[in-house]
Structure formats: C-alpha cells, structure tokens
Design a binder for these strands. Structure first.
Lengths: 347, 347
DNA sequence: GCACTCGTTGTTAACGATAACAGATCATGT
DNA sequence: ACATGATCTGTTATCGTTAACAACGAGTGC
C-alpha cells in the first residue's frame, strides 16, 4: 500500500479467453453476444474458458468500438422523493431486462445543476437521456439536440416535447377532481395552493380548478395559499372556516396539506364529508391510513418509468415505430373524505 | 428513418478540437484535465475551440485507456424505499462533486438477482461497488474479490466486512431502545417482530432486546410476531392486551407496526404512555405526525451514503489512509409515546 | 560555456473490444 | 464435377483517449 492509489489491475480479456479456448478473440466475442452464430462445440469451449478464467466482459472497450454504451442517463431533481424514486424504479426494471444500465444524476431542483449534471453524464455517451419535463435551460436543450441523443421527458404531458414524452396532464387532474366534488354534491369549492412556491404542475392544477368551477358551478376561484405541509393545510382550513364558511369542499394541491385539512377539521368539529369534502393529490400513504380516508389522485409513477424505458428500447432497437408521446393518465381514488350521500347532501 | 436504428453519429473529438486550436490532441487532453499543466495561451485557445465545436469529452475512450471509468456501481434491493433512496442520494451528492457517476442496479430483495445485476454492472468496470451489507451469495463475494474492485457494504455495521463498511449496529439499537423504556419506567416489555420474514437486521434488534430485558429487568423475552404493517401492529397489540395485560411497554421492530399499536391502543382505551409505552424504529413520517408522537430510532441514511462516497473517494485518490469501517450510530428520538412522568409511573 | 533542471509540447503505442471483410469448409443441386 | 450458397471462423483496422516517453527551448548555477 503505497501513498498513491494502486493502478487498477489488468483483468482477463477476450484474448485470454480465446487462447484458452483455442479460438480467435473474435469468435469468443461472437460466442458471448450471439451464441447461435457459432458452432455448438465452439460455444461450449468458450463457455468453459470463460468460467475457468472468470472473464467479465468489458463494456467500456466494446462500447467505444460499437458506439453503444448500453447506458441510459436519468437526471431527476432528487431521488429522496417517492415520486422520482418510483419512476427510476420503473425505468431500471425494464431497462435491465434489455441489458441497459441506468446512470443517475440529481439536479436538486436547480436548473443550473441540471444543466451541469446532464453535461457530465453525456461524457459517458448514454444512448438516451431521461429527465423530467419542465423548464430546462435553453442551453440544455441545445446541448441535447447537438449531441443528437434520444430524450424522454417524463412526468408531465407536454404540448411540444423536445423529443419523446410520457406523463399525464395536470390540467385534466384539476378538472377531474373538481368534477368529482361537484358530482358528490359540492357547491362551493376552495383550492389550497402553494403560493410563491407554485411550480408548473401545481399551476396547471390550479388553473384547471378555476376553469372547472367556473364552468360547472359558475363560481369564481377561491384560492388559499399555504406551505406544502400538514401544518400548512391546518392553517389553511382555519382561514377557510373563518373567512368563507359557505365553502363545502376543499381541493388541495397535494396530499400533505390535505391531511392537515382533515386533522384541523376534526379538531374544529367540522364533519368530513358531511359538512366539508376534502380531496388531495399524490396518493400519499397518510391519506390511506387516516380516518376518514382521503380522496386523492394516483399517478402511475412506476408505469411512467416503465413506458419511458420501453420507448427507449424501441427507439434504440430495430423497430423504431412506437409512439413518441404517451399520456398515461391518472386515477381519482374516492375515499370517505368525499363520500357524501344524498342524505348528507340535503342536510 | 429506416426500419433499422440509425448508427449513432460520430461526435467531435479531441483531434477536431486540436486541429482547430492548432495544437496536438494530447495537449488538448491536458488542457482539459489539468489546465495548470499547459501555458496560459494554450489553455485559452483550447477553451475557445472546445466552446466553438461544442466538444463533449468521451469518457468511454478515456476510461478504456486509463482504466478509470469514473463510475461507481450501487446495487440496492429497491429504490422505491426511502431508506435506500436516501442512501443513494447521499452517495451521489458526494460522488458527483468528485466527478464520479453512479450506476444503479436493483436486486428486488433477491440474492440471485443481486448476483446477476452486480455481475452485469461489473462489465462497465466501476471503480468501486456499493451494496447493502447482508447475506450475499458466496459467488458474489468471490466475484468481487477476483475482480479486485473496492467494495463498501452499507447500512449494517459488520464484524467482518468484505472490504469497507459503513453502518450502524442493530444490536446497539435494540439495547438503546430497551434501556430508554426502562429508564422511563417500563417493567415488562414486549417485542413485536416479523416472524418468518425476519431479516438479519430485525433479528439483531430482537436478540439485543432479549439480552437487555434479561439484564435490566431479569425478564424473559416476550415476542409477538405480526406482518410488517400498520394492521399487523394493531393485531399484535390486541393479542398483547388479551394475553399479557401486565406488559407496560412495546418495542416494535419498525414504525409501521408501532403506529398500528398506537392506533389500536387508542381504540382500546389503553392510555399511551401512561398505561403503555410504545417505541418503533425508522423515524417514519407517520410517527412524527400521529398523536401521541411515536418514540423511534433515526438512522442517518443519507450520511451513510455520504460516508460511503467519501471512503471511496479516499481509497481511489492518492490518500488511501482513511478508516475502512465506520459506525455512524443512530439516534433515539423520544416522543410522547414514551413520555411517562414519575407521577404516571407511580400510577 | 556547460551541464542541468523546469516547463511545455509532441509522438507513439496502447487500452479491449467489435465492424467489416475475407477465407475456409461443407452440403446441395444441377 | 463444379458452381452456389450457407455456415463458421479468422484477420485487420479502428473507436477516442491517455500513459509513457522523448524533445525542445529557456533559464540557472557554477
């Protein structure tokens, strides 16, 4: 152990295997990648030599020559969020089955970082890049275009994707939830948003809320902003009950504040769903466990990752025919927080 | 767009840049990797040429020659668990700062899969491998040893790590929680475990529980097994109250069943913490929000990833002097579920 | 003025695999 | 018997970079 790091040792390579198997290295390469293209006898001898020498293929060398790194880059804001973790899980699930690996980068919700990280990943010559739909830097778009690598923008369904796109429409989400509430008897619906922290997805939900209450109830939007936390939701409901008691339903931008609304309602003696209905977004575990159960919207996160992977595999394979954009939709999960019966409604 | 996938196009390479800058490609390489090793003038000319041509370095080629892929492999059971997601986040946080990328693999809690995935990742010649401590297959250990790549086993602190190791001791966790309960006045403590699903970490906690109740209370272990869910915890407490009403504290193998215990206690009219104290493990969000708050154990997940990364960077750099094993410890978070006062205790 | 070092740059030969092509062998049909 | 094609294997050059070494000029000390 000297002071300097030991130079990584030489591994056994194709030539070693070839020598041992008594064939050329090209034959070994073939035997490993397309076993049906060599004779039965050769294949067996190569297999034995590989096992005996413990040969591990070197994708770096192969990738250099063939220009196919068998690597897909994925840049997300953070992995420490179930949303993106699930997407990545779906992505790897499918890609590994096709012998692609995933190289991960995190942008920590910073566009500058996203740009830097993506550029760094490109040095590894990924065969495709996956990143969340959103307000990328212009530079990043140009970089990706110049490199000419296939790109999948995920999560949000876009009007004009850079290349490929899988996601759902947050506008549709807003409309669906409001419609659900109205069907259950809501007559005056408030929206709990995130104020200055509002991102594009949240904005889309809010705007769709506004349009839909206008259309179905002829109501003006009533928006209460609060931090995206349980306590934020509590505070929001306190204000709602004080400022506008006629409100009989609340649509929260996410499940966390929605749970806060439920807890505050319980303490304030405000009956859910009889007096007030509550709906959130994201299908957080909380909402499933709390009583009454929280009506919410479930997005097929994992499925988004899987579909992105399938698109990539199709594009890189020899059957580049699949669609370039897919709307995976979402699911409104009705639970007790909006389970108002006709009898309740009349009260 | 023909039926076959287009062969990835040739990118601008070092030679292109060199030609434009009027130097040799070796000089460009140096200017990019160690700018201080070329003259001021040369550096500027190279920078300009790089910018003009939009050159993106090719790590595949560089890695082949230098045998340094600047890639770290990380194999975890699933990314869709906050535990591992946080570890990976910590890992990438640090590694990206040192210009390493993380290639991810998931084993889905299967040893066979772990073996396969790791072998696949090794083809990309990672400079180190990170994987959870645990019962790897023998083959895997041999493979890693033969390849000679540095390995960090994470999460659990091991007696005999394969190579490097960062984690905490689940035995210490068990002892610390029981000690906490005893200090708060517990006299008869039950353990809610996971029965047949018990993994090595859970077992360590259970065994330490048994030893510590023996030592401090001269009590025999009282174990109730239940599924690792909220409902499992509910069922476990129902049995506890029926079978052994003298029990005044419950240590659950995880927060999920512990929350179930809390909920069931509430419904059964069993006062927490006065009549019964409850402790869990994992610092799940639930436990923070529920009332009474759940006493639990917090493990510095992200820190584990960061330390693993630091160990790797040290090992691969020219200062291979750091420790090869680190116990990151853990933190008992006392909340109301064990906040019994002296007065309570006497009742 | 000579040997020597230092800083800078260039030249050459890998790294380990695979694409592309060429050659060998063998069966088959005519 | 011979062309034809199918099947299998070998040879050569190459992917883009960097390690290793060589070379050169300028400055330095004696």
């Amino acid at each position: 152990m000297g002071p300097a790091a030991a130079k990584p040792a030489r591994h056994t390579n194709l030539t070693d295997v070839a020598r041992r198997a008594g064939v050329s290295s090209m034959t070994v390469s073939r035997a490993l990648r397309r076993p049906e293209s060599v004779s039965e006898d050769t294949r067996r001898r190569v297999e034995r030599a590989v096992a005996a020498l413990g040969y591990v293929p070197n994708n770096i060398a192969g990738g250099l020559r063939s220009r196919r790194s068998r690597t897909i880059a994925c840049v997300i804001p953070t992995i420490a969020s179930p949303v993106f973790a699930n997407v990545v899980q779906g992505l790897t699930d499918v890609l590994y089955g096709h012998d692609y690996r995933v190289v991960l980068g995190t942008s920590n919700y910073s566009e500058a970082e996203e740009q830097r990280v993506t550029a760094g990943l490109l040095a590894h010559r990924p065969e495709a890049v996956v990143l969340p739909a959103g307000d990328h830097r212009r530079e990043l778009g140009r970089l990706l275009k110049r490199v000419g690598v296939p790109v999948v923008e995920i999560w949000e369904r876009l009007e004009n994707p850079v290349d490929m796109n899988v996601g759902f429409s947050n506008r549709d989400v807003g409309a669906a939830v409001v419609t659900h509430l109205v069907e259950r008897g809501a007559r005056r619906i408030a929206f709990v948003g995130m104020g200055a922290d509002e991102h594009a997805r949240a904005r889309a939900r809010r705007e769709a809320y506004a349009e839909t209450v206008a259309r179905l109830l002829d109501q003006k939007p009533i928006v209460f902003d609060a931090p995206f936390t349980i306590d934020g939701g509590r505070a929001a409901l306190a204000r709602i009950l004080r400022d506008d008691p006629a409100i009989d339903a609340v649509f929260c931008v996410g499940d966390l504040p929605a749970v806060g609304v439920l807890l505050e309602a319980h303490e304030a003696g405000c009956a859910v769903p009889q007096r007030l209905m509550v709906a959130g977004f994201g299908d957080h575990e909380f909402g499933r466990q709390i009583r009454p159960g929280l009506t919410t919207v479930r997005v097929p996160e994992r499925r988004i990752g899987q579909i992105a992977a399938e698109m990539i595999v199709g594009r890189l394979g020899d059957h580049d025919t699949g669609p370039r954009a897919i709307d995976v939709g979402f699911e409104v999960i009705p639970r007790d927080s909006t389970a108002r019966t006709q009898a309740d409604d009349s009260g």
